[in-house]
Design a binder for these strands. Structure first.
Lengths: 332, 332
DNA sequence: GCTCTAATTTGGAGCGCTCTAATGGTGTAG
DNA sequence: CTACACCATTAGAGCGCTCCAAATTAGAGC
C-alpha cells in the first residue's frame, strides 16, 4: 500500500520535484510538454498528492472541524449537509466529532479538532462553556451555530427564534384562536428566545401568554400535554410546541384523549424536520432553513480562513411558517 | 494565531526536541524531573502537538475516512454515531464526506478522502461502482456498510435482510394473516435480499408472495399503497413495507381510504428509526442495530490499520422485530 | 574510586510536500 | 555575435514532527 511520492513522479517524468509540484497545483508557468510528461507519469503511477504533507509545507489547511452535539437529530444532520456542500465547492474537507452534549467530551473534541490545525471550527449546538469557545477562537476561526451566544471574536449563525414564535402565534390568531399555549424548550438560550417571542406576540395581540415548561423531545411533549389535560379548567384551543418531536408527542396524547386535531386543538411545531412533512403527520410548523444555516456557517469560516479579520458576525436567518393539517380555526 | 512548536517547548524547558516528543507520546523512559519540566513548559505556552506533522513523520494515520451517501437519513447518522464512538475510544478522528448517491460525486469524495492517507475508509450505503471500491482498497483498508457487496479484499457490515424480512412475515402469520404483501425497496442489493427473504418466508408458510415494486421513501410508500387500492380485488390484510418511511407513507394513504390499522390492515416497517418509535406513529418494525453496525465497521478498520491482513470479513448483524401498534390479528 | 551496564537524552536525518531564490535556456534587439 | 530580458526549471531549505543510533549520565558492584 506504499503510494508513490512526488519524487517518483519526477524521476519517471525526467523532471525535478518542484516541477511536479507546480503541475499538481495547476500552475500556468509550466510548458505544455512538461505538463503532459508529468501528468502521464502521475497517471501511470497512480499518484495523488499527500494532503497532509501539502498542508504542512504550505502552512495552510483545507480542513474544517465540525463538532456536532447530536448527530441523530436530523436538524444537525441537515446543517452538516449545508456545511458539506460549501466545503466541497470551496475545496475544504470536514473533520467531524460528536459531543453528545457532554461538556467534558465536547471539550476534548475541540482539543482534538484543533490538533489538526483546521482552517476553521464549526460548533453545532455545542454545550461547551463560553470560555472554551473563546480559547479555541484564539487558535482558529470559530463559528457557533444554533446556539445564540455572544463571545468576543466568535461568529454565530442562528435562526430568529423570536420571529419564528411570532409567526406561529400570528397564524393561530389569524384563524381565530385566542387561548394559545406554549410548550417551551427548557433552559437553553434558543428556548428562551422563542419563549420570549411567543409572549411578546401574544401581548401584541392583547392575549395572555401561558407557558408550560417542557423540552425538545417527544416525551417532553407528551408530558406537557398530559399535564395540561390533568390541570382541568378551560383547555387552550392551540399549542405552540417547542419543536417538531415535542409537537408529535403532544399530538399522540391529544389523540388518546379523544381530542380532534385541529378541530378541538391546533398544534404548531418548530424546525420543519422531515417528520413534520410526512403526510401521516402533516404538522404545521416553523421552518428553520437548516441547510442555509450550514452554508452560511461554512462561508463564514472560509472567508475567515482567507484572511477576513472583521469583527464578529452574528448572522440571523429568517424562519418561515409552513401550514399543514394540524392547525385550523377553533371549533365554533 | 501562530501556535508554539515542539522547539519552543524544548527551548523553554531546557531540553532537546526529541525529549519533548517522548514526553508528548507518553514514553516511560523519561525521568520524572524532565517530564515535569516539559509538561510545565508546554502548559505555559499552550502547546499541543500538530496532528498532521505527527502523522507525516510517523507514517501513521489517525484519520478514518467516512463516506455517507445521505446524512439526512437518520439511519446513516446513527451508523456514523457508532463509528464515532469507537473512533474516539481508539484515538481516531473522522473525516467525513457525503456522496448524495451521485456516482461522480462519490468517486470524487473517495479520492479526496484518500488524499489524506487515512488509516481506513468506511463507505456507508455508497453508490460508487465496485471497481472504485476495489481501487480504494489497494490504498487503504475499506469497509462497506449497509450495502451487500462481494469485492475482493473489502470487508462489509450488513444486517441479515433475509432474516429481517422473515421476522416480519413470521410475526404476521403468527397473528393470523395469510394475505401478506411486500412493498419492496427497488433495485438495490439490500432490497433484493429483503425481497427474497420475504418470498422465501411466505413459501415456507405455504403462502403466495405478492410484491409491489416501490422504493425507500415516503412517497414510494404512498404510491404503492395507492396502486394497491386501485387495482381492486381482495386487499391483503398486511403489508411488509420497504422501510419505516415507506411504511408511514402507506399508513397515511390507508388512513385516507378509511382503512383501520391494524384492524383492516397491518403494516410492518424496517429500520426502527426514531420515527417508528414515536407514540403517534407506533410502527411495528424490524430493528437494524445501526450503532452496532457502525461500531463493527470502525473496529474492523482499526484492526486492519493495526496490521490485520486476514481475508475479507463479511459481517452480518442480526435484526430483531419490534412489535408496536400497527400490527394485530386480521379482522374476523 | 573505577568499571560496566542500564537508563536517559540528544543530534540529525527524513516524512512528502511548498516556496524562494537562483539557474539555465530562448528569443530579441543592438 | 553579444547582451539583455524573460521565461521555464531547479536546488535546497524548511514545515513540525518521529525515530534511529549515538552520546551522555546514572547506578551498581567491587
Amino acid at each position: 500500500m506504499a503510494r508513490p511520492t512526488m519524487a517518483d513522479v519526477a524521476a519517471k517524468a525526467g523532471v525535478s520535484r518542484a516541477l511536479v509540484s507546480l503541475v499538481m497545483r495547476g500552475s500556468e508557468k509550466v510548458s505544455e510538454r512538461r505538463r503532459q510528461a508529468v501528468l502521464d507519469a502521475a497517471a501511470e503511477l497512480g499518484y495523488a498528492p499527500h494532503a497532509m504533507a501539502r498542508s504542512l509545507a504550505s502552512r495552510t489547511s483545507t480542513l474544517l472541524g465540525v463538532l456536532v452535539s447530536d448527530l441523530h437529530n436530523p436538524f444537525f444532520a441537515e446543517i452538516v449537509d449545508g456545511i458539506d456542500e460549501v466545503a466541497r465547492a470551496e475545496g475544504f474537507e470536514l473533520i467531524l466529532n460528536t459531543g453528545g452534549l457532554d461538556v467534558e467530551r465536547e471539550r476534548d473534541a475541540v482539543t482534538r479538532l484543533l490538533s489538526f490545525r483546521p482552517a476553521g471550527l464549526a460548533l453545532l449546538g455545542a454545550a461547551v462553556p463560553a470560555d472554551v469557545i473563546a480559547d479555541a477562537a484564539r487558535e482558529s476561526p470559530v463559528v457557533v451555530v444554533a446556539r445564540p451566544a455572544r463571545i468576543a471574536g466568535v461568529d454565530t449563525v442562528n435562526d430568529d427564534g423570536g420571529l419564528g414564535a411570532r409567526l406561529a402565534v400570528d397564524h393561530l390568531v389569524g384563524v381565530g384562536h385566542t387561548r394559545i399555549m406554549h410548550f417551551d424548550g427548557g433552559k437553553t438560550s434558543e428556548a428562551r428566545i422563542r419563549r420570549e417571542g411567543y409572549a411578546a406576540a401574544m401581548r401584541a395581540h392583547g392575549l395572555r401568554p401561558d407557558v408550560v415548561r417542557s423540552e425538545y423531545t417527544d416525551a417532553g411533549g407528551e408530558k406537557a400535554a398530559a399535564r395540561l389535560l390533568e390541570r382541568g379548567g378551560t383547555l387552550p384551543t392551540a399549542v405552540v410546541a417547542a419543536n417538531d418531536v415535542n409537537a408529535v408527542g403532544a399530538l399522540s396524547v391529544f389523540a388518546d384523549a379523544g381530542l380532534g386535531v385541529p378541530d378541538d386543538i391546533s398544534v404548531v411545531g418548530y424546525d420543519n424536520t422531515a417528520l413534520s412533512g410526512l403526510r401521516h403527520v402533516a404538522l404545521t410548523t416553523v421552518d428553520q432553513p437548516r441547510a442555509e444555516m450550514g452554508r452560511l456557517a461554512a462561508h463564514t469560516l472560509v472567508e475567515r480562513a482567507r484572511g477576513d479579520r472583521g469583527k464578529a458576525r452574528r448572522r440571523l436567518v429568517t424562519p418561515s411558517l409552513v401550514v399543514r393539517a394540524t392547525t385550523g380555526p377553533p371549533r365554533g
